[in-house]
Design a binder for these strands. Structure first.
Lengths: 196, 196
DNA sequence: TTTTATTGATTGATGCGTCAATAAAAAATA
DNA sequence: TATTTTTTATTGACGCATCAATCAATAAAA
């Protein structure tokens, strides 16, 4: 009984299903049938809306990235000082919306897939650049540019590293601990060095 | 024309071929035929020696881990002070043998696979524990235990994070830069706090 | 003659992508 | 308004390719 205007609903459902399927399997080795089943439709419909599997995966990663970006922008809007901007970027990466097993597993899986797909690689590069730039938007108000660059690089690496170790269920046990660890690093690098 | 005593030779060749295949493809999505072909044998022979594909992959990861362990032990033997022990562990992770695209791609791919395979997960946990313990072997001589724990955790996360970002060909451009970044972190955390 | 090394051929399973068919809504036409 | 036509939504069934794993066969060494 076809209702009209189903396309956006199905697209959303399929992307959500893709995330949860990847999260459960822990890799991109999920079948179109599995994803479609979770979304409550046939695999043929998934192909109808997304063409090939790659495109569905790509759309899924883009969706995750877009969500992260929205959250980040909102958090940055609330930050009043450069120091708060840095903390805001870190906090978003470990917020309840982002730092959940499904999303972490997806990140990891997409990092691997990016080795094969240049489209996906480009997407993840954009994330890396944006993260760096967001961190710099706060750090340049506190440190000289060269120094800020290094701290941004280290902070980004810390975020990615803590994500991975979380995927292994090893290392830091929760988001709060992860944030404290990075904040501790930032404190030792930033205190007593405020620009005039 | 079967020569005897081929087993160890073939096993080694197949594991090396697996690493290079994974390194090139950037994921574990390599066929047994591809691997066997690189090793100069038939896929049937690969099955003959390793049984199933999982076992070959497992043996490959174990081999990579063993190599890392050997290198680390050698480096630690040369370290004279606690501070040098910490640097030694970091240096090995970014040595020419370890910080090459093939090995990095393999690490990343195996991290993902560990989500599915509990055997592999156990193996990677051992690595994580060992890394932590190796770092602690130096840090406990410099910092109080709780503090040492945090620094070890952060250092491990930094190493993993820099590995990932390297896989994306983004972030730090080379091993030297990566080492400097971590050493910079360690300096700010360790200087002026030597235990009596 | 038994063991070790080796492979070509085959099988069976899996999974992507296609296609024709069905049906409801919307648009066009009478 | 009643009808026909087109568009949108949806799926079951199927073809086709890929690959892991097996097996029987071959041949050199012990």
């Amino acid at each position: 009984m076809p209702k009209i205007g189903m396309e956006p609903v199905r697209r959303k459902a399929l992307i959500d299903a893709t995330i949860s399927a990847i999260g459960e399997r822990g890799s991109l080795d999920v079948t179109m049938s599995e994803i479609a089943g979770r979304a409550g439709v046939s695999s043929a419909l998934a192909h109808h809306y997304f063409g090939a599997k790659d495109e569905l995966l790509f759309a899924t990663m883009r969706h995750i990235l877009a969500e992260l970006n929205i959250d980040t922008r909102r958090a940055l809007r609330l930050a009043m000082t450069p120091r708060q901007r840095v903390s805001a970027v870190v906090a978003v990466s470990f917020s309840d919306d982002q730092f959940q097993p499904q999303i972490i597993a997806a990140w990891l899986a997409f990092y691997v897939e990016a080795q094969k797909s240049s489209d996906l690689r480009r997407l993840l590069r954009i994330y890396a650049r944006r993260l760096h730039s967001n961190l710099m938007s706060g750090l340049t108000g506190i440190l000289p540019r060269a120094e800020a660059d290094r701290v941004a690089e280290a902070t980004a690496a810390l975020i990615d590293g803590l994500y991975i170790r979380r995927a292994l269920k090893d290392g830091v046990p929760n988001a709060q601990t992860a944030i404290e660890l990075i904040e501790d690093y930032l404190e030792t690098k930033l205190t007593g060095r405020s620009l005039p």
